[in-house]
């Protein structure tokens, strides 16, 4: 059946056959005209099955196939890219944590929620979309929320990107541009088509000039979140919320 969704403020229709995909995407249903249409073929599902490291039920492959097609189209047409990270909003501003799997992104994110309570919300725990709108970078929630299914249909202005690693003691520091770009490129879909790749690099260039990027080394104590918070927001405690 064909449904229309709006993800990252981009309306599109998709022909989906599984209830699972519908349920995954239902928070993003949209009553309006789509910009484009996504059709999932048997070949697309077979390809996802091949790419997946796990033996998953077919409906999950459909959801991933929609995501993959959507991502390629928005990279081409909307100044947007996907970024594999856990993203939270802190007083309305987006902070992203990225790391190799198993580093403890969820643990760290939980420390923020514990220490800052209602000021922190999860935007998306796995695959948010980053999009530049009128020169400003935003982090958008998407239906693809990761293992714990956490996230909302919201957008927040991108404030900080933290490359997370584990350490005995907590510290947050600056990170050089090329390291940011190479690490970021390892956490996104890298298109092979030269024009798309060129768009992505251009977008990343803008992203890193606008969004502060940090090398964040943490343990699992409360101090980890506090150190990170102070490093990111240190100079403006008590400042009014920004949208």
């Amino acid at each position: 059946m064909i449904f229309t969704f709006k993800i990252a403020d981009i309306p599109f229709s998709a022909d989906i056959r599984y209830r699972y995909t519908y349920d995954t995407m239902r928070d993003y249903l949209f009553d309006g005209e789509p910009d484009f249409h996504i059709e999932i073929t048997d070949e697309d599902l077979a390809r996802e099955r091949e790419l997946s490291p796990h033996d998953l039920p077919e409906p999950m492959h459909e959801s991933t196939a929609v995501y993959r097609k959507y991502i390629y189209i928005i990279m081409e047409r909307y100044d947007a890219f996907f970024f594999h990270c856990s993203s939270i909003s802190v007083d309305g501003q987006a902070v992203m944590f990225t790391a190799r799997s198993g580093t403890g992104k969820s643990t760290h994110r939980n420390l923020w929620m514990k220490n800052f309570g209602d000021r922190v919300k999860i935007i998306n725990d796995d695959k948010p979309v980053i999009r530049k709108v009128d020169g400003v970078f935003y982090v958008y929630g998407t239906p693809w929320r990761g293992k714990e299914g956490l996230g909302e249909n919201v957008r927040c202005k991108a404030r900080a990107l933290c490359f997370l690693s584990r350490s005995e003691t907590n510290s947050i520091g600056e990170i050089d541009t090329v390291s940011v770009v190479t690490r970021a490129l390892n956490q996104t879909v890298r298109p092979s088509e030269p024009k798309l790749m060129s768009n992505l690099l251009e977008l990343l260039d803008g992203f890193i000039t606008q969004v502060s990027c940090y090398d964040l080394r943490v343990n699992m104590d409360d101090d980890a979140a506090i150190t990170a918070y102070n490093g990111i927001f240190g100079n403006e405690k008590g400042k009014a919320n920004e949208d």
């Binding site: 541009t177 770009v181 190479t182 092979s192 690099l201």
Partner: peptide
């Protein structure tokens, strides 16, 4: 493809070879 970021540059693979060449060169 070479793209400059600040003083340094990054080289990425594009086109048909991109799937076999995952590395990034700085």
């Amino acid at each position: 493809m070479l793209r400059r970021f600040g003083d340094d540059s990054i080289v990425v693979a594009v086109g048909e070879g991109a799937e076999d060449f995952n590395r990034l060169i700085t």
